[in-house]
Simulated scan of single mutants.
Amino acid sequence: MCELTVTAALLGPLLDSAPAAPSITYYDDATGERIEVSAVTLANWAAKTGNLLRDELGAGPASRVAVLLPAHWQTAAVLFGLWWIGAEALMGGGADHDGADVALCTADRIDEADAAVGAGEIAALSLDPFGRPVADLPVGITDYATAVRVHGDQIVPERGPGPALNGRSVDDVLAAAARAAATAGLQPGDRVLSTADWATADDVIGRLLAVYAVGGSLVQVAHPDAAALDRRRAMEKVTRTLE
């Protein structure tokens, strides 16, 4: 029997109902960056990431993937990609990443990634809005921006996913996301603004997955300029704010 992945459960309804609508809009107030990603574009990036993990980095439903990345639209693509192949995301730091098979990280966290995976695979993300690679990347580390673009944007989802997030099953993660959405008072279709990071498994559930659990969309702001937030709420038609 085919089991549902986190990605299929949360992105699937959005792809069916509003594939071209904004799914995540990312701002970085330190750089002036703004990127709007539709549900179908996020799913395509997730598929490309899943194919990279599966075909090039050897990941699958028994794999544990350390995610050493900030709250960013590409991080969302990484998470949904690894869940599409049934792998387990490891969020947090230190012991939370022990025994990881693969790590995805920013350049400043390569040492952490190396400690997490030992002889395992590491892919580094520049998070550059124009897709530029990481500069001066050490030998043996995959550059995500370069590698992911050659992979297909369609994927065969894993039929028997393993644990999804820091030891929690797919069902546990989906139930936790629904509870988090209810606790935050999120409603179907909400446009949600957040300036919070996704450092832990609970952060990912409460600040990312809860939004998708109600079919909402996310406005994620890095390095927020407090003076600009009210204007942004109005411009982006924000209906809820997550702290």
Rank of each mutant, 00 (worst) to 15 (best):
A62M: 14
M91S: 09
A87Q: 03
T75Q: 06
G92P: 08
W83G: 00
V102N: 00
V65L: 11
A71F: 07
Q74H: 09
S63G: 12
V102A: 03
I85F: 02
E112H: 12
S63F: 14
W73A: 05
E112Y: 05
G81D: 02
R64I: 08
A103K: 02
D96Y: 10
I85R: 00
D114I: 11
I85M: 01
L68T: 02
V67A: 07
A62L: 15
L79S: 04
A66L: 08
A107V: 15
A89Q: 08
A89F: 10
G99V: 13
T75K: 03
A62R: 15
M91L: 15
A62H: 15
R109A: 10
R64E: 12
G99K: 10
G93F: 13
L69C: 13
V67N: 04
L82E: 09
G86S: 07
A107Q: 13
V65Y: 06
T75Y: 06
A113W: 02
V78A: 01
L68P: 01
A66S: 13
L57W: 05
D108P: 13
G58D: 12
G58Q: 10
A95P: 08
L82H: 04
L104S: 02
A107I: 10
V102P: 01
I110A: 05
D55N: 14
A87T: 04
D108E: 15
D96V: 12
T75N: 05
